[in-house]
Design a protein around this nucleic acid. Structure first.
Lengths: 338, 338
DNA sequence: TTGAAAGCGATACCAG
DNA sequence: CTGGTATCGCTTTCAA
């Protein structure tokens, strides 16, 4: 693999000139430039990005950490990030954490060791304190889909509480009183906030939320199945289910059917996220739209601008610009009852 | 950000010793080692991976290029790669191509510039010739989900022709004669091979494949919808649909329903890939299982071993180890007719 | 066991 | 315009 010096030698110039050509710098004669370009092509020279990075004291591409590649929400996030990266002609380096604290930490650390200046982090398992430390240390680090008060100007998050309230509101308005909720295990705050939203909203009506109505499990199709199975096994009565996400909702639907219960006739179901999945099944799922792609784009832009210009004081209220609002999408999995 | 020299100074030793400690090298006294470690922790020193890479002439992590992050198959691939990366305690750097020749090329190029030695590439838009060139140049490059004869020892692929044959076989055995096929646009060979498999198998029966039975479109849910719409609009008669993938199959199913046609009563549908999606819908989709995760794991291991040991001659027949076989999964979207 | 010093591949300043 | 060269942060002989 030829180096810049090999090229220089072959072209009969100095490495300095070659470097100028590589970086489209000025101060190179037209013929010299052409000649160097030719040699570069002929020798199939490829600049060593590591050597470049070591000099420029930074890494131009943008680094991403995602909690879990198998989460379907991931595709939308990644897509959003990709969009703005493409716009700016930047590469993205993605390092996944596989839903495990140690590997999430590892992923961030590796990105830092490579000196990426703009970091978009979607962490599910790392505690607030550690993330705050990282954020303080790295000006271009932005947290996607997570809210931490102390560094809210570095977070892009969804108003999960509102999301929960939206679900509760809708289902109560449709006349439901016995409402089961399927949440997920883990330290994610999303689930906690959504639950809070649900409870708070329910309490505004003469509908109380009882703990036995809550089932926790995995955030997957299978998780939805077992949750319903447990609910049924425990003999709790319900005419509606509010699920933590679409996959759970769909798993729940399928298990209900297996038990002879039809959706929405016998049980209404509400999902969350509004992934494409929600529109593929019958009945089409009523769910909460999660603008995660926009959020990802925003996070990326923010990380990029912070990494370049760490002292650019934000004037506007952070909450206005960084908190995104979920909206209810009515489809056919909820039925009005008397 | 402290450098190795800062640490050395603070510890009153030479950078050489610090380097040895960082790399768990030998030849460092126990107390010296401890002292250095302490200082490293205190000063929050993080080695500069770029500087390391420049010296070691290579990049230990493994690089991945994926054609399109939004493809659901991607999650499974990524997961497979991730699994073996985690086993070996390696990081993965993913660079996505967004289904566009230029960005796929870019993605590979960037990875090469960073001197990643092990590369797993899932390219959909780059032509054979270019990929062959890359493969010749980079010993640790492996093509996932693609077959190129000239470099078949560097490819991990699915027997798409067999996949097509499996579909055809099953549907004909169930008594179908009028069989529509939904393929996809683009230069992917998968679709071509599957189609060949379908045709070849059909021809073994007294069932001819007619061009008007073929519809091409996007490899998505929406693609399936419009394909069915076109089929119907063109007035072609069919009792079965073989789809390029599950998403298309599901989109097709939904559009059929919209036209008052029920699956599998009026029309049988067969998908491809066997993603989780296939089991979430009603009726559960009969499809071809695609062992993409295993394939991804194999590709990763291969890339890793090639990058380390480029002259390790493979003894076994490549085709036996690199060609994966699809298998039919019968569920409920196909009905026997007389 | 330790340190001095020569690279690794590229950039950029300073002369010419 | 062009070239020499110090430098970036780290690894790795080679001596001591």
């Amino acid at each position: 693999m030829p180096t810049i010096r090999d090229i220089a030698k072959a072209a009969g110039v100095s490495p300095a000139s070659v470097s100028r050509v590589i970086n489209n710098g000025p101060k190179v004669g037209a013929k010299t430039r052409e000649k160097i370009k030719r040699i570069i092509r002929e020798m199939e020279y490829q600049p060593n990005a590591n050597a470049q990075a070591i000099n420029m004291q930074n890494n131009a591409s943008i680094g991403i950490v995602l909690a879990d590649l198998t989460d379907p929400l991931f595709a939308k996030m990644a897509h959003g990030i990709e969009k703005v990266a493409a716009e700016q002609n930047l590469q993205i380096f993605l390092n996944s954490g596989a839903f495990d604290r140690a590997s999430e930490l590892d992923a961030i650390e590796v990105l830092l060791e490579h000196r990426y200046q703009a970091l978009v982090v979607h962490s599910a398992m790392i505690d607030d304190k550690t993330l705050i430390d990282f954020a303080r240390k790295v000006p271009g680090l932005v947290l996607l889909n997570r809210y931490i008060k102390e560094i809210e100007d570095r977070c892009i998050w969804l108003d999960d509480k509102l999301g929960g309230a939206l679900m509760a509101d809708h289902i109560v308005e449709k006349g439901h009183q016995k409402i089961a909720v399927i949440g997920v295990d883990g330290i994610l705050n999303n689930t906690r906030y959504r639950l809070e939203g649900i409870k708070a909203q329910l309490n505004k009506y003469p509908v109380q939320f009882e703990v036995e109505m809550l089932e926790q499990g995995a955030a997957t199709y299978e998780g939805g199945e077992v949750a319903v199975q447990n609910l049924l096994a425990r003999g709790v009565e319900f005419s509606a289910i509010l699920a933590y996400n679409d996959a759970i909702a769909i798993g729940a639907t399928s298990m209900l059917k297996a038990h002879g219960l039809s959706v929405p006739k016998d049980v209404s179901v509400v999902g969350f996220n509004d992934l494409i999945l929600a529109q593929c099944i019958k009945p089409k799922l009523t769910t909460i739209h999660n603008p995660i792609e926009e959020m990802a784009m925003k996070a990326t832009k923010l990380a990029l601008s912070l990494s370049k210009n760490s002292d650019l004081g934000e004037i506007e209220s952070v909450a206005d610009k960084h908190k995104y609002v979920p909206v209810l999408v009515q489809r056919h999995s909820v039925q009005e009852i008397s």
